[in-house]
Design a protein around this nucleic acid. Structure first.
Lengths: 111, 111
DNA sequence: ATAAAAACTTACAAAAAGTAACTCTTAAAT
DNA sequence: ATTTAAGAGTTACTTTTTGTAAGTTTTTAT
């Protein structure tokens, strides 16, 4: 019987929440605006908004407001957020080795 | 505007599905039986069953049946599954550095 | 035949995600 | 002064996933 490390469990809870991985990989390429992320990622505005708030609350993402016309808001990673780069990189490495072009199409289902 | 790599997207979809990370970290410690995982992880039998089927279908987990009394079924990682070790390790590393004992308690919410 | 242990399933309620239309803020143009 | 437009969300509502607990199946020792 193994013991679960609570810090690991918490980290996993954040990182494996749906869309968080894609948002992180987007922001690892530099700061982004809300609408840019909405365009680049297959995620709706509602959930993008929820996730960015959650990530800001966890200290992973920063929100910067520029009072121009029209208002510009940029999201970027904090140091804590940048710290997740190796995680994203390892997922990229694994997918390069193990995900074949054919299975990319498939839906993931358990049945 | 960045382009999303479809293999990366697919990998992220698998890995970031709820509970998958914890199941992988459990199996990285060696083969496990259904009931052991049910005991060790905060996941119900229904979802554990769903996730193991999905991971088997994706070629990440292997299911071995031993016809004893009572029947024994052991789950283990395939080579593809073992390949995810660096991903899990990097999440562990990040949590060691960035998750403080205080925030372990907190629920993750976006509001 | 009966019983018992492990490994699932089923049924149903609760929470999260998907979708599309709508609001809010600010300033530039008329 | 009013209208317009752009970016950044929010709301209302439907569909999927999850959570929970009780029930089922399979195998073989007695």
């Amino acid at each position: 019987m193994s013991e679960l490390c609570p810090r690991f469990e918490k980290a996993m809870e954040i990182v494996s929440k749906r869309w968080v991985g894609l948002i992180l990989s987007e922001l690892l390429n530099g700061k982004k605006r809300f609408s840019e992320m909405e365009t680049d990622l297959p995620i709706s505005g509602r959930l993008l908004s929820d996730r960015l708030k959650m990530l800001e609350k966890e200290g992973i993402v920063e929100r910067n407001i520029y009072s121009e016309f029209p208002v510009r808001i940029e999201y970027s990673l904090t140091e804590k957020g940048e710290g997740l780069k190796p995680v994203i990189n390892e997922i990229q490495n694994w997918s390069d080795v193990w995900i074949t072009p054919e299975e990319v199409q498939d839906q993931i289902t358990e049945k």
